[in-house]
Design a protein around this nucleic acid. Structure first.
Lengths: 189, 189
DNA sequence: CCCATGTGAGACGTTGGTGTCTCATGCTGG
DNA sequence: CCAGCATGAGACACCAACGTCTCACATGGG
């Protein structure tokens, strides 16, 4: 049959708009989501059976993007600090999505889909663990905490950028520098 | 008339329980909030006229606790890094509350109440600015970003503790060390 | 040209949560 | 002991959002 090149509604665009809106207002109406995406509620409902389906789609997209970012970041190659930098850079486009999924843990009600996130958590934690074993990272901060902190900083960064409190171009630099180097001045580089 | 020492419902306890629940499930029902607090929906509704009133009360409590933590932390005294440490320690009891209020920015719809948060933002940002001017903190990370990052880390920390991923006793240390020192090993202390 | 497809607008019934009420229970203080 | 008060349980109407439907319109292809 083949898809017609019409396909006016960009599913990906709808999902990202929904994520951006739902992040700051998780109680947003389907109508608000539709308007934010520039489509009608009817069309939104044609593409996503319901609110649950929409959130599920957001979750799937988020997992896929995170996995893709992890793959592109090559977390097992080179210095761990460079890998973290690559990871943040690769994950930036999905930051809004990740922020939504991180804060809306209602997803974990289903007890399922856990597999995808567990896998991502493990891969990121493994990166920090590798950095500790190579002597790059301090060992008094657990990989689990560093992973959680990374999520939190990505969320804060996405939020700050969306609010215009910081420049979009500084996103990666802000997060990587704070996560790795901290706020204190370095005496010896 | 004087309050009877009966006062079975601990308003403060209800608010904190509600914050903890609403943080991870912002769509929780009033009934769920009541059950989580160990009271009936009727009683919950006697103390808070409605859902809006409950959220407003959470916001007021959060602002009050943050201001109190700021006062207790004496952000203008001594080295800025020590002040940050004191601030995180003082704010720890209100971490769950703050996490909820930080992620549920639907509060800002009202365009109001902004004053309280703006004041808190300013005081925290001023602390980081003081640290930069004294030469303690690096200047390539803006005070605004450091403030946002602090919020994000507090949220992540509260969440990680609530989930049992990290020990409660490590809360302050984790946040302060990461925020100030970063993940990299220090060559020269 | 006409048909097919995807969309916007709107109407409709349904559902779940809300807000308010009443009544029965259990505890405290006088 | 009794009176008073706060609570728990439940019933009730209300309402906003949801999910589904229909119809008209626009665009693109045969």
């Amino acid at each position: 049959m083949g898809y017609s090149c019409l396909m006016a509604v960009d599913r990906d665009h709808v999902l990202r708009t929904a994520a951006a809106l739902l992040t700051r207002k998780s109680t947003a109406t389907m109508d608000e989501v539709a308007k934010a995406a520039g489509i009608s509620r009817a069309t939104l409902h044609r593409h996503f059976a319901g609110r649950d389906a929409l959130v599920r789609a957001l979750e799937s997209l988020g997992i896929a993007e995170c996995e893709a970012a992890l793959d592109a970041a090559r977390p097992d190659e080179g210095p761990a600090r460079d890998a973290v930098h690559r990871l943040v850079r690769e994950i930036e486009p999905a930051a809004g999505l990740l922020a939504f999924l991180y804060t809306e843990n209602q997803l974990f009600e289903g007890e399922q889909q856990n597999a995808g996130w567990a896998r991502i958590d493990d891969r990121i934690a493994a990166l920090f663990r590798r950095g500790q074993q190579s002597g790059e990272f301090r060992i008094d901060l657990s990989p689990v905490w560093l992973t959680e902190a990374l999520y939190g900083l990505i969320g804060s960064g996405a939020w700050a950028v969306a609010e215009g409190r910081v420049a979009r171009n500084d996103f990666t630099h802000m997060i990587v520098e704070l996560l790795l180097g901290g706020a204190l001045r370095r005496e010896a580089p």
